[in-house]
Design a protein around this nucleic acid. Structure first.
Lengths: 252, 252
DNA sequence: TTCATCAAGTTGTCTTGACAACTTGACCGT
DNA sequence: ACGGTCAAGTTGTCAAGACAACTTGATGAA
């Protein structure tokens, strides 16, 4: 069993790719041990330092962890942030202790501005908590009106059907007063103050493909997040500028 | 010039520490080149792979970058998130294009609940934008009332005087109506809806040492942040669970 | 049955050596 | 003066080898 020594792709990257696809294929499951460095070196007819380079790469990508004296183990993958939902994933939302549910108020309808509009509402113990209105750029999401919006999360749909993954997302916080529409949907008096979160997703080459407005009541529920400062001497270096700041002040 | 081969600290870590302190001391400045791997190996009487392990460590910590064929260069340090301010740093706040200023309304006064209370207000073009009330646990911040709160950022003070750095910070978003106090401080009518951000900083062993309430007007200004999802196959792996989620819904 | 010891196995550190791929600057020709 | 070529220098990749430090499981003794 050999790697392709004449390929321009370095041997260690070939091995890393192979190990990664074996992990993805379930050959090695979460918390299970991959073959030892010496075994992999024998198996692939390469030196142990080359094996270490490959496993180093996967360790740094969070897929493997090494335990000195024991071996190298597959780590549980951290779920990527789902910036299209409130609580991480739609599944987590409906399974949480909150007895929360997400209902689709209207599927993708094409608007005159060239966007598909989707409305959904979240309830906790049958109390309406928030209304979310999503706008999908119709040219980038062709046929969205023909897609089922309840079979999987919106992020999964965007990724699997349209092959788009956001590289960043802006969230803007403001306050608004409930008009008749919001009062009706959220079942509260008009002129109740509501938290408004405008979210805009940025994809490679398509900075304004998808945006959402989330209007929430904060009288019975709170909306929070946790920030993690990365300090100068920490283990993992974040990419340049890619840390979430607490809040930035901008004029309207 | 030798490293201490009988120390339990591996040679590569000793070299990394030495290089780091030389960078910190200004021996090598931003964008300048450190000695080549071969030169460092000669200089310190170690092998070149050991030098690479040291520079690898600093590369992964974001302090060095390697340019193949050219050498190894000092990178500009990314500022850590300042979770005690709105716009990153107090200095950035007053220097921004916004003509913004931060004024101290009241210095650290000891309250009956065992916290020092600090109030400050932000203005843009002399328009009051927000009021921030900070509560410092008096036992953890002894003598805070004797400290100048305007010479440096609060984060710098907390770090340099009290040797505390937050490992995380919670932000909770809700809405409130301006009472007479807020109406006065922010110069707007009573019953104006305001955005309320409750921020709680967590330190090692001291989960509730410092919290803040920030009350903002959103009629003329918006408050935003940018999220950066880390995807499964990205270069840099974030620590387990340490990505900022968009928002999490919790009952009051 | 429990605990201590030891051997085998595994990762962590380090060495010397070599070639590949790239960068940069000097030199030469037009 | 400008452009091309080449040599020297530098990082990137890879190898074989060795010892240190740790883990784990098996075995033997109490």
């Amino acid at each position: 069993m050999r790697l392709n020594a004449s390929s321009p792709i370095p041997l260690y990257r070939q091995l890393a790719d192979r190990l990664r696809s074996e992990i993805d294929a379930g050959v090695y499951t979460i918390d299970s041990k991959i073959p030892s460095e010496n075994d992999l070196a024998d198996q692939f007819r390469i030196g142990r330092p080359t094996v270490r380079q490959a496993t180093d790469l996967l360790v740094r990508q969070g897929q493997l962890e090494r335990r000195r004296g024991s071996g190298t183990f597959v780590k549980k993958a951290e779920p990527a942030i789902d910036v299209l939902s409130l609580a991480g994933t739609s599944a987590a939302f409906s399974n949480s202790e909150l007895n929360a549910q997400l209902e689709l108020l209207s599927g993708a309808t094409l608007e005159s501005n060239g966007h598909y509009c989707v409305k959904r509402r979240a309830l906790v113990d049958d109390i309406p908590v928030l209304l979310e209105t999503l706008h999908f750029h119709a040219e980038l999401f062709p046929g969205l009106d023909q897609q089922s919006l309840t079979d999987r999360s919106l992020s999964a749909l965007v990724k699997e059907v349209y092959f788009l993954e956001p590289i960043s997302a802006d969230q803007t916080f403001s306050v608004l007063m409930a008009d008749a529409h919001y009062a009706n949907v959220l079942d509260l008096p008009e002129q109740t103050p509501l938290l408004h979160v405008h979210r805009r997703l940025h994809f490679h080459d398509n900075p304004d493909a998808l945006h959402a407005d989330i209007v929430c009541r904060t009288d019975r529920f709170e909306f929070s997040q946790t920030l993690y400062p990365t300090h100068a001497n920490s283990h993992a270096s974040s990419k340049a500028g890619q840390q979430t700041q607490p809040l930035q002040l901008k004029p309207l």
